[in-house]
């Protein structure tokens, strides 16, 4: 392969960035999970179109890769929004009223857990326990943990995201 990236940005991502990851792991078919983790780290998601390509390079059936992608909750097949809300729905947060917060987010943004707003502004995800149980209910908004959420606090946070 030439030193300069020759591939065009098809489907919104470049195959070169994927090649880099594959080379890092020496195209090892046993390293599917770290390879996919790195691709997602770079692109924000695992593009469906690249699965066949990876399969070819690793000599692994694309179905197996697709199987891995859909098995683990970490992997996403669609691009993320600009902002991210990760709401903890673990036991302590549930007991502390996470469902009310979830309803509130859905009401304010019109999306459910696992979805992204049409304008790609916000991705809303639900995760099981981020280990801050004594601060329940908790959400991670753009990497920052927000503790002891109330519906009012949630609406303020969302308003700030929308204003951006």
């Amino acid at each position: 392969m030439s030193a300069v990236c020759a591939c065009s940005e098809k489907n919104g991502f470049s195959y070169c960035s994927i090649d880099e990851v594959l080379q890092k792991y020496s195209c090892d078919g046993n390293a599917i999970i770290p390879i996919l983790q790195d691709i997602q780290e770079n692109l924000g998601y695992v593009p469906k179109d690249c699965i066949e390509y990876i399969g070819e390079k690793l000599s692994v059936a694309p179905a197996r890769i697709y199987g891995v992608v859909t098995f683990y909750t970490q992997f996403r097949l669609t691009p993320r929004g600009k902002h991210s809300i990760m709401l903890c729905v673990g036991t302590a947060c549930h007991v502390g009223g996470a469902e009310k917060i979830s309803d509130c987010i859905t009401e304010e943004l019109g999306i459910k857990g696992g979805e992204t707003t049409d304008d790609r502004l916000v991705t809303f995800e639900k995760v099981a326990c981020i280990g801050c149980c004594s601060l329940a209910p908790v959400a991670i908004v753009n990497g920052e943990t927000i503790a002891k959420l109330t519906p009012d606090k949630t609406r303020t946070v969302i308003a700030e995201l929308k204003a951006d």
């Binding site: 729905v89 302590a92 326990c129 280990g131 149980c133």
Partner: peptide, 12 residues
């Protein structure tokens, strides 16, 4: 792989 929601001793 502490997956049990509500347990955080391994993380700590």
């Amino acid at each position: 792989d502490e997956g049990d929601p509500g347990a955080f001793m391994d993380r700590s």
